[in-house]
């Protein structure tokens, strides 16, 4: 198996930025974290109207969004064939004629995200593309299987070739305020992942309050998470703008305090090109340009790509497009 390191460098944070080593659990900082829900909701509501891109800028931003997608298949009925199809789509996310018209040949998605059993299939299917494979792990999505097995699962996925591990945290530690337990768990998961980079899924829809989201974000970063991620996509409420703002602000505070840059991955519920543009504008406004690269920002999405393809088709041809004119993943 060969890996194109120059490509990988663009995707993996541990290669482009100094990797977050974590720090001792600072409970005082955690206790001070605040998130005023109504004020955050107001900012989130006004954000989409405050920034916009048109014409070529919009096409470029949509291509950027594609390059940031963790193209995802997380269903009980996934098969090797289904995953190979997904990987083919990751290599060629947009019809070649459209990419040629845009001058964006070679555009791929940021990664492919699958269950452990599908890691080897995906790694083989993506061989030579430089597209990393992310595995959801640790008893995804509930995170309630035996702790020993959850840790072991990480190691197995890494051994199978996953270079990114999306772990789920134990929501009960957040809901009971047991920050030490959350910190310890996260530290061990990070350790188990070795050189693979770790995205901590907070499952924000199950944390009860934005303040809990802020505090859980800080604890996971202190324990060495490379990315923090909103949701598994399986909770009743997944990525929302208020939740994302809360996590982004925690990332900014962590960088201010430690100097380390942590990535962000909203997942679940982002299915429209327009929403993706809002997220990109939010990252640019709140954290700056470095968070518009795949090493610090990903979308966890499956149906988003289809909408972006139609928008790009419209940009190139001037006609509104239809789904059947774009190849399935």
């Amino acid at each position: 198996m060969t890996t194109d390191l120059t490509r990988a460098a663009a995707q993996l944070p541990q290669l482009a930025h100094p990797r977050n080593p974590g720090m001792a659990l600072d409970l005082e900082w955690v206790a001070q974290a605040q998130a005023n829900a109504p004020a955050i909701a107001r900012r989130a509501a006004s954000l989409p109207a405050t920034r916009g891109v048109k014409k070529d800028h919009q096409a470029a931003w949509l291509c950027k969004a594609i390059s940031l997608i963790d193209l995802t298949a997380l269903s009980g009925d996934d098969t090797p064939g289904r995953v190979r199809r997904l990987c083919a789509k990751a290599r060629q996310p947009v019809r070649p004629d459209l990419l040629a018209a845009l001058g964006m040949e070679g555009l791929t998605t940021g990664a492919v995200c699958v269950y452990h059993e599908m890691v080897e299939t995906a790694v083989r299917a993506l061989d030579g593309s430089g597209i990393p494979v992310a595995a959801v792990s640790t008893g995804f999505p509930a995170g309630l299987s035996p702790y020993r097995l959850r840790l072991a699962e990480i190691g197995e996925s890494v051994a199978a070739g996953a270079s990114e591990i999306d772990i789920v945290i134990s929501r009960r530690h957040v809901l009971t305020g047991d920050w030490q337990a959350l910190y310890d768990e996260m530290c061990q998961m990070r350790q188990a992942a070795g050189s693979a980079h770790v995205k901590a899924i907070l499952a924000t829809g199950e944390l009860g309050s934005l303040r809990n989201v802020a505090r859980a974000s800080l604890v996971c970063m202190m324990a060495g998470a490379d990315f923090i991620k909103t949701s598994t996509g399986k909770e009743p409420v997944n990525a929302t703008l208020p939740v994302s703002l809360t996590m982004i602000r925690a990332i900014r505070d962590y960088q201010d305090r430690t100097g380390f840059r942590i990535g962000f991955k909203p997942a679940g519920g982002i299915s429209k090109a327009k929403e993706a543009l809002v997220y990109l504008a939010m990252m640019k406004e709140e954290l700056g340009h470095p968070w518009l690269q795949p090493d610090l920002f990903r979308f966890g999405a499956s149906s988003l790509l289809g909408d972006i393809e139609r928008q790009l088709d419209h940009h190139v041809t001037g006609c509104y497009s239809a789904a059947n004119r774009h190849p399935l993943g």
């Binding site: 916009g52 891109v53 048109k54 070529d56 096409a59 470029a60 390059s67 964006m104 640019k284 340009h289």
Partner: peptide, 15 residues
Amino acid sequence: MSVRDLFTAMSYGPA
């Protein structure tokens, strides 16, 4: 600027 240049610059552009 080409789309590829804008892909790198990620500027807003006039709207």
